[in-house]
Every structure is written in structure tokens, then in C-alpha cells.
Nucleic acid binder design. Sequence first.
DNA 1: ACCTCATATGTAGCAACGCAAAGTATTGTG
DNA 2: CACAATACTTTGCGTTGCTACATATGAGGT
Lengths: 115, 115
Amino acid sequence: MLPMRPELLKGHLDALLLAVLEHGPRHGYAVIETLRTDSGGALDLPTGTVYPALHRLERAGLIASNWETVGGRRRRGYHLTPAGEAVLGEQRAVWDQFATAVTAVLARRPWPATA
Amino acid sequence: MLPMRPELLKGHLDALLLAVLEHGPRHGYAVIETLRTDSGGALDLPTGTVYPALHRLERAGLIASNWETVGGRRRRGYHLTPAGEAVLGEQRAVWDQFATAVTAVLARRPWPATA
DNA sequence: ACCTCATATGTAGCAACGCAAAGTATTGTG
DNA sequence: CACAATACTTTGCGTTGCTACATATGAGGT
């Protein structure tokens, strides 16, 4: 597993978090775990990355939260808002576009791979 | 064509530039054009992005340059160094990993898409 | 001659974002 | 009782791409 520089994630994190919350409501810690398992271990994000991002998404109205107490532990359960669902849809399209473009540039080789 | 937020590119630009220069030597302006055509118009980067990035790559020893004068115009021709070629190889692997991980997370839907 | 566009390069300053590091608190385990 | 795991928070930093502006030459049009 090659080292993945942190800047790579920039701009893509929001889409990932929204996608995870589309599974169903989750609290921050669980979001991190879902992200790790869904990505096959490739995306193992620190709390200092995820929690502020969740706050940002809530301020933007894309997710909403409510405090719960489970087994004596306070946790903040997040869920998608309709606005968040809409944005997630756009973000998926943007990602597809971006990934296609980058892959195209990186795939083009000096000796034409495609005759 | 959806608007592509500039942060999306962060961390991926170096790989793109190296890949373009793998085609063969090019000056900055031509790099921008190649990038645009190779990406089908999706990646149309401003000079204020590309030139500093090329300087950075040169300082890092991944590319090298020599001044030429063609038709009375001064241009700086860049070409890959062996180190740059090696890094490009790694970057391609990193991109594949990253893209696979993000696609996996974004693709996972609440109700199975194929049902 | 004049203007404008395309070609070609450069830099200063800004804004955004992910992260490291540190801290708080509770529950479970050895 | 120490320690790990769970769970959340915040400050400050570094990197990076972009906006805006500046400079200069050649080509084409009027």
C-alpha cells in the first residue's frame, strides 16, 4: 500500500462523507469506520479531519445532527438533509467527470497504447 | 459540464504535468494545451496554476528545462528527468488506488442499485 | 500606423482544506 | 489501577491552486 499524500483528498472529502451518511444515520466515529471498510482500508481518516468536516457540512445545511446517549456515551448522530442528498448527486457526477479526465491524461502513453 | 471546484485538483496536478511531459518535451503553454485536449476539455488550467507548478517540479528535480527561441519568442522547454519518470510511475499507482477507493465509497448505495 | 488576439512567461497574495497534536470524558478490560 | 477503545473538540500549521496583474513578441485586420 503506497503512501497517500493528504492533499489528494482535498475537495473530495465532502462527497465521501455524504455518501457514507446515505447508508443511514451515523455518528462521527462510525463514519470513520464505515469509510475505512468501504474503501478497503485505503481511506483511514483521523478525527481531526472528519469532525471539523462534519461541522462544516452541518453549517452548510447538507447534514443535520441530534445528540444521543448510548451506554453512557454521548454521541452526535448525523443524517443527510434533502439538500445534502441533492448535493451528493451532483458530487457523484463531478467525481465521474474528474476521474475520467485524470485517468485519460495519466493513461495516455508515449507509444500509443491504443494504436 | 458541471463546475469543477479548484480544490479537486489538489495533489493530483504534479502527476498530470509529469504525464503530459512523458509524451515528449514541451513548454508551459503547450503543456496547458495538451492537458486540455487530452482531458477532452475538462482540465483547462490557468497559467497561474501551471507555471508555478512547473517551477516546483523543476526545483524537485523531476523535470528540467532549457530556454529556446522559436520565431522570436522565448520559451522554456521542459522534459522529464529519470527521477521524474520514476515518480510518475508511483503517482499512477497512487491515483489508481485513490480513484478505486473513492469510486467504491461513492458507488455504494443504500438500496442495491442492481435489484 | 493602430488595435487586438494569440502566444509565452512570470509573480504576489489569497483562501481553502486536511492534518497533526493536544485535550476532555466515559466504558470496558487486563 | 492502568490502559485501550470509544467519542468528541479545537488550535494552528503547511500545502497548494487560483485570481489578478504585469511583461513581451508575432500575426492579422482595418
